Amino acid sequence: MTTSAADEEHVPRTPAPSVVIVSGLSGSGKSVALRTFEDLDFYCVDNLPVELLPAFVRSLMRDDQLPQKIAVGIDVRNRHSDLSKLAQWRAAVTELGFDPRLLFFDANDDALLRRYADTRRRHPLARLGLSLREAIGLEREVVQPLRDEADTVIDTSALNVHQLRRRIVAEFAPGSGTALSLLFESFAYRRGVPTDADFVFDARVLPNPHWHPELRPLSGRDTAVREFLDAQPEVAEYVEQVSQFLDTWLPRLRGETRSYVTIAFGCTGGKHRSVYLAETLAAHARELGWEDVATFHREQD
């Protein structure tokens, strides 16, 4: 049996797998974006050398279970001379049968300076001996070719983590972001309490892994730290009581006009106990059926 050209026109075509290239200024929200894409079941890779983009996509094509949604982080950590060549690597991905989109995150200098002051993290270009403001200015110049090439530019200057997540969900998974979203955040008290937190819990009363040399360089996401804290009776009691509180009161917020809630855990350095608690309570919320649950570690991310 033969198929005519007219018949072929009516055969539905399978949509091309999507590749979202996530880029932007350091501190503008790229890490939050990539975690959001992970929550949306994208296959995510961060800090991929731009010239390896086609090779990376080809490697996925050899897999029997080819991901239909891929997100790749590409930014100033690449060799600067390569960023201007993104268009040709993007074209190569298109020739492989994929639909590449470039999503660029921007923010004004004041917002970026404030975020770096809050987290005390080093800018990727600080190694050049530049001040923070100079590093931000140089980065703008370096990533300008990516901004010019972008399909979508999102200015995050006035967005909090929840608002940024919802913007991404609305753009890339419309219709799936209507539920109350929960953000479990960790922070260091010495750098201030998050201003947008709805509930704040103090973890400084719990045993501190910092005082164990083998645990000090790790974080609350590492197995050794989790096993240490899991074994502490005080930690188990703390988790149980906080879980009971949240299980009682979070469902009652569903009927309010708010669309998101931030639950923050603080400790001295924002590295061990608070991170452990944020991850543990987020996992508990997912087990209870909450659909939109995320974590954010202010001093780590």
Score class of each variant (00 low, 15 high):
L53K: 11
P54H: 10
P54Q: 10
E51W: 02
P67D: 03
L52Q: 11
Q68F: 05
S81M: 03
D75T: 11
S81L: 03
L52F: 14
I70A: 01
V57A: 13
H80W: 11
R62M: 06
I74A: 08
S81P: 00
V76L: 07
E51Y: 13
V72G: 06
Q68P: 02
D64P: 02
L60Y: 10
K69F: 07
I74H: 05
D64A: 11
S59T: 14
V72E: 12
P54A: 07
D63R: 09
L53D: 04
F56K: 11
S81N: 00
L53M: 14
H80R: 08
G73W: 00
E51H: 15
L66A: 05
L52H: 10
D75E: 10
L66F: 08
E51V: 15
V76P: 00
R79E: 14
L53A: 11
A55K: 14
Q68M: 11
H80F: 13
L66Y: 06
R62G: 06
L53S: 07
L66T: 10
D64F: 01
V76Y: 03
G73I: 00
I70F: 08
G73F: 01
S59E: 13
N78I: 00
M61Y: 01
P54F: 08
R58N: 11
K69G: 01
K69Q: 15
S81K: 02
D64H: 05
F56T: 14
Q65K: 07
M61E: 12
N78P: 02
V72Q: 07
V57Y: 13
L52D: 09
R58M: 12
N78S: 02
S59W: 02
L66E: 09
A71T: 12
L66R: 13
S59F: 04
D64Q: 06
K69P: 00
A71H: 08
R62N: 12
A71F: 13
Q68N: 08
L53P: 02
Q68H: 09
V76Q: 05
L53C: 13
Q65A: 14
D63P: 01
D63V: 04
V76C: 04
V72K: 06
R79H: 15
Q68Y: 03
S81E: 12
G73P: 00
R62V: 14
L53H: 12
I74F: 06
L66P: 07
D75H: 09
L60P: 13
Q68S: 09
R58F: 06
R58C: 11
V76F: 05
L66Q: 13
Q68W: 04
Q65R: 08
N78G: 01
R79K: 12
E51I: 12
I74T: 06
Q68E: 14
Q68G: 15
M61N: 03
D64W: 01
N78W: 00
R62C: 03
S81W: 00
A55H: 15
V72D: 04
S81A: 08
L52P: 14
M61G: 01
V76W: 01
P54C: 06
V76S: 09
I70V: 15
V72N: 07
D75Q: 09
D63H: 04
S81Y: 00
I70M: 07
A71Y: 08
D63F: 02
S81R: 03
A55Q: 15
A71E: 07
L60H: 10
V57H: 12
A71L: 09
F56M: 15
N78Q: 03
V76D: 04
M61D: 09
L60S: 10
Q65C: 06
L60D: 08
F56I: 14
R62S: 13
I70H: 05
R58E: 15
G73R: 01
P54D: 05
S81V: 04
